Computed example of a mutant assay.
Amino acid sequence: MKSDPRAVAAVRPPRLLLPSVSRSPLRAVAQRVVFAVVLLLAVVAVVYADRDGYRDTAGGPLSLLDAFYYATVTITTTGYGDITPVTATARLVNIVFVTPVRVLFIIVLVGTTLEVLAQRTREEWRQARWRNRVRDHIVVAGYGTKGRSAIETLLRTGVASDAIVVVDPDPKAVEEAANAGIAGIVGDATRNVVQRRAAVPLAKEIVVAASRDDTAVLITLTARELNPSARIQAAVRESENASLLRQSGADRVVTSSEAAGRLLGVSTSRPHVGDVLADLVEHGSGLDLAERAARPDEAGRAIGEVGEPVLAVVRDDRTLAFDDPDCSPIRPGDRLIVARSLPRLRPSGDGREESDS
């Protein structure tokens, strides 16, 4: 029976994961083993080449096996003393070659431990530096389908990846976000301590993309308590829960299941309208919507005289539809919601997207 990530996250302290370049531990260990073997073979070759300069207490000349034995016990600092250098040349070789090799071999043996300690120190320093710098960022609670899509749209609209923080109870999801260049917190976003770890009190936007409506309500309540001024965008599956989210402090609520249902219904009854709506939902290619400030030369003009199709005007924090009489004339400080046609993206042979233009 699989454990629920939310239940596990509720009892574990939140953990911060920052973007990093991953390196295979097996490959690192293999490289050290190969280097250690090369050092061992080098000592064996030197000792066997000057085997007449060594004396074995068991008597007889030094064999290749004896050279391997001496090299092994010497560079590992065991040193039984049954085979010893007796000539000046052999002793000089031990001083200028075998001893440095012994030191290098020890470094290789403890290198993994040193690297782990250094990596842990470096990671703690990076996390402390991140906490001191994070301000006016966007917190995305939930890295499922909705959370990933929201982040992809944010990145395409010009939001920097270091201005986004993911919170999710599933360590694999947060690790996936970190590999994509997004900092993440492993923990239950309904908890106050987890949201503080994600610097919610300093955030400017909070996106609630939880998989359950009750979870979304709790996340919104906690976030609004920690940050009364941040804008909170939340998604719910059922429309009957939208009012609960608004009462909890959400500024905007998107009903995902009903939105999908409406799109399916429109696509069935009016397929061309459905195509346009689907194109608008897919940000970054084809038909797209953009918000921009009204230019000085557009002030005093009707919205029909603007070079781009204007669908709405944002004025005094109110959104006026294109057919609202108050839309015209355009006033200084207005923001225009315009429709644009962007180059369509098509998948290339290597899985990336390429423009048709």
Rank of each mutant, 00 (worst) to 15 (best):
G59V: 05
G59C: 03
G59A: 07
G60M: 06
G60V: 13
G60L: 08
P61R: 12
P61Y: 10
L62W: 03
L62T: 05
L64I: 05
L64D: 06
L64E: 06
L64S: 06
L65Q: 14
A67D: 06
A67L: 04
F68S: 05
F68D: 03
Y70A: 08
A71S: 08
A71E: 01
T72H: 13
T72K: 12
T72L: 12
T72M: 12
V73D: 09
V73L: 07
V73T: 12
V73R: 02
T74D: 09
I75M: 00
I75G: 01
T76C: 00
T76L: 02
T76D: 04
T76I: 03
T77P: 09
T77W: 14
T77A: 15
T78M: 13
T78E: 12
T78N: 09
T78Y: 14
T78G: 05
G79P: 00
G79W: 12
Y80L: 15
Y80V: 15
D82Q: 13
D82A: 13
I83F: 02
I83K: 01
T84N: 12
T84F: 01
T84R: 13
T84H: 08
P85R: 01
V86A: 09
V86R: 07
T87E: 10
T87M: 07
A88R: 13
A88C: 08
A88M: 11
T89I: 15
A90H: 00
A90V: 03
A90Y: 00
R91T: 10
R91C: 05
R91L: 11
L92V: 14
L92G: 07
V93L: 15
V93S: 07
V93Q: 13
N94A: 11
N94D: 15
I95D: 10
I95W: 12
V96W: 10
V96G: 04
F97I: 11
F97Q: 02
V98H: 00
P100K: 01
V101G: 04
V101M: 05
V101Q: 04
V101E: 06
R102Y: 05
R102A: 10
V103A: 14
V103F: 15
V103R: 10
L104W: 02
L104C: 10
F105S: 01
F105W: 06
F105Q: 03
I106H: 14
I106E: 14
I106V: 15
V108E: 08
V108P: 01
V108M: 11
V108K: 05
V108S: 11
L109N: 08
L109Q: 11
V110A: 12
V110Y: 10
G111S: 08
G111H: 00
G111D: 02
T113P: 08
T113F: 15
T113D: 09
L114K: 07
E115G: 09
